[in-house]
Design a protein around this nucleic acid. Structure first.
Lengths: 200, 200
DNA sequence: CGCCCCTTTGATATTAATCAAGAACTGTGG
DNA sequence: CCACAGTTCTTGATTAATATCAAAGGGGCG
């Protein structure tokens, strides 16, 4: 799905990773989010007809398409369902704010550490990771495009994190060896993910 | 309204400017958005019970408080109203993405130029500005905290924009002298604001 | 086996942060 | 109307972070 499209359906990611991004005039790319199974990356298209960015998969993936029309009827007939979906888009926005914080006010190291923590918590909540380890499909270039860094600099930060023993990263398999230290480095506080139902 | 609060009402800004932000452990601040009359800065609190950031006014301001309970009933009874409010929060997210793009992949100059264009279009749409001029309450420090720059650097960029004749800025009154050039500099494309109803 | 993409490393350049200090502005009370 | 205090703005000098350029290894896949 591309910028300027006017989709008539949403896609639910069942397997694999996807991301949202925009290409800039000078060939640069900004990635806005990484998505994992259970996410509906383009849920916003339900109420914003023109796409202001693009979506693509980052791995082999399985997706389910849900046409807008029945979805709109469903949310109208069952406000509770609508509220849950609305809430999803709000959490989406909260994650954007967190990434903004990283790009604006955190160091490259903190930013990357934060991303690794965030993805783990999201995956763990979906039952897709445990023991502080998971598969991380994005390339170093992808990570740079997400956090506003060059691929070279991402590479150097990763080596530093490895040298310090905080993480092990090989073949896109990430193992967080020192969660306490890594989350401290990134100033990671999962409140913004709003995962606990009781807390809203 | 502060981080960790659990508000029971939303506030509609009637007069003045407000902003949303978070303070970081080391005293740094990240501003997420500037708000103008007509905005409901904390609409998300309707479905996310815990605030993951703070809201404050930047000028003398008038606000109307709308309790959550009747608002929730309203959106349940009239799905059309709910859709409109939901849509507002989606545009909010689109603006976050645009700011991310600025911080990640645009130069400081481009980022600031983009912000000035964005605020003008928003104000103009509300009938609060015309002729490419408006009152801009944020200090240079505020602008820096919003775009991830130091106040000193913001000052230098502003001087450059002034020296080039692109803008006139005095006493928080901004006049954009060369809209075409400024919007080119910032790579500004208002699609993301989703202002035209026909376009969704 | 070979190719392409990704990773890694080094050298250099650029952007923007930090530190520091003085000037201009704002609001306040006398 | 003026003096004062606290911000905010401005400028210069220096430093730190990160980008860019370039080139050499690795690894997976057809």
């Amino acid at each position: 799905m591309r910028e300027k499209d006017r989709p008539s359906q949403c896609c639910l990611l069942l397997e694999g990773w996807a991301c949202r991004y925009r290409m800039l005039g000078d060939g640069k790319r900004q990635i806005f989010s990484f998505h994992i199974p259970g996410d509906i990356p383009d849920l916003q298209s339900l109420h914003l007809k023109v796409m202001d960015h693009s979506v693509c998969t980052m791995t082999a993936a399985t997706v389910a398409f849900i046409p807008h029309e029945p979805l709109r009827k469903l949310t109208a007939a069952f406000p509770g369902v609508g509220a849950i979906l609305w809430r999803e888009t709000l959490v989406d926005g909260a994650i954007f704010r967190e990434w903004m914080t990283g790009m604006g006010r955190r160091s490259a190291t903190g930013s990357i550490a934060h991303l690794f923590c965030e993805m783990y918590v999201k995956l763990e909540a979906m039952g897709l990771a445990r023991d502080h380890a998971y598969k991380l499909p994005p390339t170093q270039q992808d990570i740079g495009d997400a956090l506003g860094l060059s691929n070279v600099h991402v590479n150097r930060v990763l080596r530093e994190l490895r040298d310090n023993g905080l993480i092990t990263l090989q073949n896109h398999k990430l193992q967080i060896n020192d969660w306490a230290e890594l989350s401290k480095l990134g100033g990671f506080d999962p409140t913004y993910l709003h995962l606990e139902k009781r807390d809203g």
